[in-house]
Amino acid sequence: MKILIGYKRVVDYNVRIQVKPDGSGVVTDGVKLSANPFDDIALEEALRLREKGVAEEVIVVGIGPADLTAHLRNGLAMGANRAIHVVTADAVQPLTAARVFLKLIEKEQPGLVILGKQAIDDDANQTGQMLAALWDRPQATFASKVEIADGKATVTREVDAGLEVIEAELPAVITTDLRLNEPRFIKLPDIMKAKSKPIDTIEFGSLGVEANDHLKTTHYAAPAKRSKGVMVKDAAELVAALKQKGLL
């Protein structure tokens, strides 16, 4: 079985995001970029399935500009067998990303597609679900445990009410939650090894995917700031303050 992994590059989660003063975007020049944390979890899960003998090949997929190669090399260094780079200078919205994945699925015929449940830049939480719809296959979102046997995935999902377990016939789309696993660290020899692993480059335009994004972002703003409050000296003062506000 092949596993396809969505491997998005985003602003590192430790970076404090600044909105540009003219509201045209957020400052991304010179900020550290990293793999979307949920995508590292997706890749780790696929590597573990390969190590268990459930899968033979793990392919990381990136959609983005020419310099995305270095990022995909990280995925290869972590352990993916090969990478596919869909080259476009434009940011793609989730529906377009899902359509790109569908094209790659038609070619690669994976048994499983694992994506992060959301990217920490746009926080959309859409691509996996959209892909599953277009592919007409099961989706198991927000996964915290995955077991593959007898042609199906048994997935524990983190939902608001607790933990939900569902069964999904393969092929299927899984999206990862935080507690699915802890991604491994990349070791130096693996970085060297990754240099010889293949990266297929596909021009976005050659896929025949329509990028008719229906959403236009017209303005970026910094969030309303909460004003800094007061420090109280002890428990009694805190309780008195909360009682005065009618909160206790």
Binding site: V11, R16, I17, A124, N125, T217, A222, P223
Partner: peptide, 29 residues
């Protein structure tokens, strides 16, 4: 497309939503 996490409705087709863990609020049409 989908508009995720609508915080405010500015018009029938204009919405505000958070990105980057709420560190930026965008207006989408």
């Amino acid at each position: 497309a989908q508009v995720s996490d609508v915080m405010s409705v500015e018009g029938p087709h204009t919405f505000k939503r958070p990105i980057y863990a709420g560190n930026a609020i965008i207006t989408v049409e």
